Amino acid sequence: MNRSHRLLSIYTRFLQRKKLDKLELSTEFKVSERTIIRDIQEIRNYFYDNDEWIEKK
């Protein structure tokens, strides 16, 4: 599985309010836990950089 697909999959689970367990994710995607941590951080950074986390009225 490529990186883009992994990031979108993690993001989708986040939107569905599913538990994000880095050990489970690393096993599923066959990457290190550190990679999962970086992926989650990148998703967070995207929202902060683009003000997506601010609820708009």
Rank of each mutant, 00 (worst) to 15 (best):
R13M: 13
R13I: 01
K22C: 14
K30D: 14
F29C: 02
E24P: 00
I37L: 11
M1G: 12
E52W: 04
Q41W: 00
I40C: 09
N45Q: 10
I36W: 08
E42L: 11
F29H: 09
D21E: 13
E42G: 14
S4E: 13
I36S: 04
K19T: 14
R44G: 01
F47L: 09
R3I: 08
E28M: 02
N2Y: 06
R38T: 04
D39Q: 07
E52N: 02
M1A: 09
R3P: 00
K18V: 01
I40T: 04
Y48C: 01
R6D: 03
S9G: 10
E55L: 12
R44V: 10
I10R: 05
L20T: 06
D49L: 09
K22Y: 15
I54G: 00
R6V: 12
Y46E: 05
D49G: 00
K56P: 00
D49Q: 10
K30Q: 15
I40K: 11
D39V: 03
L25H: 07
E42C: 05
Y46A: 01
D39H: 06
E52T: 02
T35D: 01
Y46W: 09
N45I: 00
L8S: 12
N45S: 08
T35M: 12
F47V: 02
K56S: 07
R6P: 09
W53S: 02
F14P: 00
F14V: 02
K18S: 08
E42I: 00
D21R: 04
N50H: 15
S4C: 04
I10K: 06
K57L: 07
L23Q: 11
I36N: 05
R34K: 14
R38L: 10
R44H: 11
I40W: 01
E33D: 09
Q41M: 02
S4T: 11
F14L: 13
D39N: 07
R13H: 07
E52V: 01
S32G: 14
K19W: 03
S26I: 10
R34I: 06
L15N: 13
W53K: 05
V31K: 10
N45L: 08
Q41I: 01
W53D: 06
I36Y: 07
I40S: 02
R38P: 00
H5C: 02
E42T: 11
H5K: 14
R3G: 00
L8N: 15
L23N: 08
R34T: 10
L7W: 06
R38M: 04
F47Y: 11
F29P: 03
F47D: 01
Y46K: 02
D21I: 05
R3A: 08
R3S: 12
N2G: 10
R44S: 10
S32E: 13
R13T: 01
T27C: 11
H5D: 07
E42P: 00
T27H: 14
T35C: 11
F14K: 08
Q41Y: 05
I43Q: 04
R17F: 14
K30W: 00
D21Y: 05
I40V: 11
E42F: 11
R3C: 02
I37T: 15
S26W: 11
L8W: 11
M1Q: 06
K18M: 10
I36R: 03
Q16F: 07
V31H: 08
R13Q: 15
V31L: 05
R38V: 01
K19Y: 10
W53M: 03
L15I: 13
K22N: 14
K57Q: 06
T27V: 12
M1H: 06
W53C: 01
E52S: 03
S26A: 15
L20V: 04
R17T: 09
F47E: 03
E52H: 05
